[in-house]
Design a binder for these strands. Structure first.
Lengths: 262, 262
DNA sequence: CTTGCCCACTCGTCTATACGAGTAGGCGTG
DNA sequence: CACGCCTACTCGTATAGACGAGTGGGCAAG
């Protein structure tokens, strides 16, 4: 095993009270920030760093764990540890549900993906009636059972978003909304056709670390949080006609909103 | 050391191909989810789990590391590992910059905190002229130098948000905006007094893991992401008059927006 | 009673070792 | 040439042991 190029990484400061694995993590982080290791590039292997710093393997692994927790690097079994590439981001504009887009007939997700030249995909569609949880029930105005539409969105094969729409049964049952494919313009177009004229949406946004389930569904690397968005659609009578619960891979999204100053 | 109450945690499945430390993490996670360990409560110590499962200490520590990465628990040196308490959240409504609030004269942050009975605090205020970075410069329309206002917000002593406002020098220099305390209603009120009638705001939202710097400034527990919000204020002439770059502890916030359906 | 020390218990850091398992490339066999 | 095996290198998992450092309670000295 050839030694590391000198100058690439510094030495440890034995007098420092900063833990050795933190010092190593600091040096690697700085090297990444300075571009000495580029996106997708392989970092020195554990064995090389053990050699370079004269520490034990667990110490090196601890420093990698720090960087993984920060979402900076990701390990690939059998290959090495790589600088995590910044994936292309999806920008969600606040007018994405404007009627003008709906009237064009294509789903917002597909239109947008085509626009940036990505290959969009929707899978694991499930449409069924079920009991509403307390939160959903409260948002929809104390309904007991709801129609739930679950689907996962992928961009160029990568899962980026997992969403569930909940609708009161008295609105959705027996309509195209209860079909796997609700038709052009999506369920908002159908709602308007059914006489529920949409007035406005409310969106609640949180960010947190994913559950193990979400890690699996969205194939998330460690150190990647999720954005949890809960949207409620209101008709012109002030009734909540839909709640959409969305979990997004945070590294794939930038949300954008316009607020009036008045 | 007394053994763990039986039934609290299960046994390992040696035939499973799931790693032992993951099995332990799974059991602890489930116990937390089921409420067997409540918020703020202490989990069994490493030594107790070593005893209970008959594994080495590193294995137990690995399982704790998993849960810490998920933001579920946090370790306190010398005391134990505790279920992370969910801190009270600040809700940011999309009308928080509406003129009607501004005209009441108090800063949005202070009003809101008082309303929920928290003790608000603003510290580490820095106001200075500096060179604009490329991103800020682009958002403000190619200005070279800007006035930067940095401050940190605390709720009941806990830092929750760190924000920097950038304003073009031709707008801010020599005005109350360049003072540490810009006066009632904040800088948006001053901007309007100076003839820059505000028209709308644009907000961009991202979520990611914090840098070590942000961990220090916001005193973040491990496994807590940050929400990164960049707001641009536009006047009625369409000019960007301010950019505000905000980093928030994600576990302290819910953002809320209203979107028109038209 | 108060002070200060000590000790037991907690997690934090580090070493050394072992084996398992995924990857990729070389090399020999067919 | 094509296939499959072998091997070297990678990270993943687990053990065992050592010492450091923060916390809090008990206990003894003052």
């Amino acid at each position: 095993m050839s030694p590391l190029p000198s100058g690439l990484l510094g030495d440890l400061d034995p007098t420092s009270d900063r833990a050795v694995f933190r010092q190593i993590a600091d040096q690697l982080r700085e090297a990444i920030d300075r571009g000495r290791f580029r996106e997708g590039e392989k970092l020195p292997s554990e064995a090389e760093l053990v050699e370079h710093y004269g520490v034990s393997r667990m110490t090196v692994r601890n420093s990698f764990a720090v960087l993984q927790g920060e979402g900076l690097v990701q390990a690939e079994h059998g290959k090495g540890v790589f600088v995590r590439p910044r994936p292309p981001v999806r920008r969600l504009a606040s007018d994405r549900f404007a009627r003008k887009h709906r009237e064009q007939g294509k789903s917002a997700f597909l239109v947008e993906a085509d626009a940036v030249g990505s290959h969009p995909q929707v899978d694991s569609l499930e449409v069924k009636e079920e009991k509403a949880g307390p939160d959903i029930s409260a948002r929809l105005g104390s309904v007991r059972r709801v129609l739930a539409r679950r689907r996962r969105y992928l961009l160029d094969g990568r899962p980026v978003e997992f969403a569930t729409s909940y609708l009161p049964l008295d609105i959705a049952r027996g309509t195209p909304i209860a079909e796997p494919n609700p038709g052009p313009g999506g369920i908002y177009a159908r709602l308007e056709e059914l006489g529920h004229c949409l007035d406005h949406f409310e969106e609640e946004i949180r960010a947190r670390m994913p559950s193990p389930d979400e890690v699996r569904t969205l194939r998330l690397a460690s150190g990647v949080p999720v954005i949890h968005l809960i949207r409620t659609a209101f008709d012109t009578e002030g009734r909540a006609v839909e709640v959409c619960d969305t979990v997004m891979a945070a590294d794939a999204y930038v949300l954008s909103y316009q607020l009036p100053a008045t």
